[in-house]
Simulated assay, not measured.
Amino acid sequence: MAADPGLFTPRSVTWQMHGDPMMWVAGIRALYLQALHPRAVRGVMQNSDFRRDAWGRLMRTANFVGTTTYGTTEAAERAGARVRKIHSMLRATDPETGEEYGIDEPDLLLWVHCAEIDSYLHVLRRSGYPLTDAQADRYIAEHRVSARLVGLDPDAVPADRAEMAAYFVKVRPELAAGPEARDVDDFLRRPPTHPLLVPARELLWRRVAGLAYASLPSYAHELYGRAAPAPATVTRHLRFTGTLLRAVPARVRWQLPPKHILRAMARLGPDARPAPYKLEPQVAILDGPGEGAADSDGGDGTRWGRPG
């Protein structure tokens, strides 16, 4: 019997993209963006000690993404069921109105989903990951699967860049940098650490978090109240960081726990190794004449294409 390739399979855009080291920068950008939805971030802050467990939250999200991308179908479905069960038991309260609401409301789950997918796609493409417009659309469509796992109706989730852009235009009036967003911002800029590690935090973490913040859409900079850096400068920094991180051998990077990719390759064989070049043969199939060459707008209103 053939080994189970999982929900996405090694032929998916997701399988190739999620093996890229810039996913860590993208994940931090997603946290910054998600925090701008007051109802969504309130649900996080009122149900967890974010300041003490922010690293744990980031690692749990990374583990969920790794499991659903590279794990077996059973493991992915089990991870989704666990997330849905936890969310179904949690409530949040609006301090101004006293309204109590579930954090598994579809609108809140949709915001978290779109902010993540937007961030993953935006950061990777802008940092030089070779992805055509058609493949970017395919990536967004593939993640209707992950949306289902957390409890969303796949048909209500954006399926391409145009739908993602329309979603962000629609949700924009609901966004604000409230007290909870300020807490997230403060943590990401100056995470508590052992005194001996403060120099490393200043040298490394602040650069990574600063780059993630810099890559946010212009309206996010306005809401946080800090001037947006020049887009061309941000793009250069993203490309430099991407080049630097991708120079580290993949086998070395993938040794970090929980080793989802290495376990997938052990299950499916070496041909399952994720790599950008495996997307190239799809261009002729997915793109019509002229497609994949021109840049287009992403969900946050910035350019998805590979900026110069």
Score class of each variant (00 low, 15 high):
residue 102 G to S: 13
residue 173 P to N: 08
residue 129 Y to V: 10
residue 145 V to Y: 01
residue 240 F to S: 10
residue 174 E to T: 08
residue 206 R to K: 14
residue 232 A to W: 13
residue 254 W to V: 06
residue 293 A to Q: 11
residue 59 M to Q: 10
residue 223 L to Y: 01
residue 74 E to M: 07
residue 272 A to I: 15
residue 266 A to K: 10
residue 102 G to V: 10
residue 6 G to M: 08
residue 75 A to F: 04
residue 157 V to Q: 09
residue 33 L to M: 14
residue 281 P to V: 11
residue 290 G to N: 04
residue 182 R to T: 01
residue 111 W to D: 04
residue 271 D to E: 11
residue 49 D to T: 11
residue 290 G to I: 09
residue 211 L to M: 07
residue 152 L to N: 02
residue 198 V to R: 12
residue 229 P to D: 01
residue 268 L to T: 10
residue 239 R to M: 09
residue 30 A to Y: 05
residue 63 N to G: 13
residue 181 A to K: 10
residue 297 D to L: 10
residue 121 L to Y: 05
residue 267 R to N: 03
residue 165 A to P: 09
residue 187 F to R: 02
residue 45 M to I: 14
residue 270 P to T: 02
residue 89 M to C: 11
residue 58 L to A: 15
residue 92 A to T: 06
residue 51 R to G: 15
residue 86 I to Q: 05
residue 198 V to P: 07
residue 231 P to I: 13
residue 81 A to L: 03
residue 34 Q to C: 06
residue 233 T to Q: 01
residue 63 N to D: 14
residue 61 T to Y: 06
residue 17 M to H: 11
residue 123 V to H: 03
residue 198 V to Q: 10
residue 45 M to H: 04
residue 96 E to A: 14
residue 48 S to L: 04
residue 236 R to V: 10
residue 226 R to F: 13
residue 294 A to C: 06
residue 108 L to N: 11
residue 124 L to P: 06
residue 139 Y to P: 07
residue 202 E to W: 14
residue 232 A to H: 15
residue 210 G to S: 05
residue 286 L to I: 07
residue 292 G to I: 09
residue 253 R to C: 05
residue 116 E to T: 08
residue 65 V to G: 00
residue 198 V to L: 08
residue 282 Q to L: 14
residue 111 W to E: 02
residue 163 E to K: 11
residue 68 T to R: 01
residue 74 E to H: 07
residue 5 P to E: 00
residue 233 T to M: 05
residue 177 A to L: 06
residue 228 A to P: 10
residue 93 T to E: 08
residue 147 A to V: 07
residue 135 Q to Y: 12
residue 43 G to F: 06
residue 195 P to G: 12
residue 59 M to K: 11
residue 107 D to C: 08
residue 289 P to D: 14
residue 150 V to K: 03
residue 174 E to V: 04
residue 20 D to A: 13
residue 162 A to K: 14
residue 5 P to V: 13
residue 154 P to S: 01
residue 287 D to S: 15
residue 215 S to L: 02
residue 13 V to S: 00
residue 106 P to V: 12
residue 122 H to L: 12
residue 296 S to G: 06
residue 109 L to K: 04
residue 139 Y to C: 05
residue 195 P to S: 02
residue 206 R to D: 00
residue 114 C to L: 09
residue 144 R to H: 06
residue 50 F to V: 06
residue 259 K to H: 09
residue 238 L to F: 05
residue 71 G to D: 02
residue 216 L to C: 01
residue 67 T to G: 00
residue 185 D to L: 12
residue 32 Y to F: 13
residue 289 P to E: 13
residue 227 A to V: 15
residue 100 E to T: 15
residue 206 R to W: 04
residue 128 G to R: 14
residue 293 A to V: 13
residue 114 C to M: 11
residue 278 K to D: 00
residue 306 R to M: 14
residue 218 S to D: 09
residue 175 L to W: 08
residue 191 P to Y: 00
residue 78 R to A: 01
residue 137 D to L: 09
residue 261 I to S: 02
residue 300 D to Y: 12
residue 178 G to I: 00
residue 304 W to D: 15
residue 189 R to N: 02
residue 215 S to A: 12
residue 208 V to S: 00
residue 82 R to F: 07
residue 164 M to L: 12
residue 51 R to C: 11
residue 201 R to T: 09
residue 171 V to G: 00
residue 144 R to V: 07
residue 53 D to N: 15
residue 15 W to R: 03
residue 144 R to G: 04
residue 232 A to V: 11
residue 99 E to A: 13
residue 186 D to R: 15
residue 177 A to W: 03
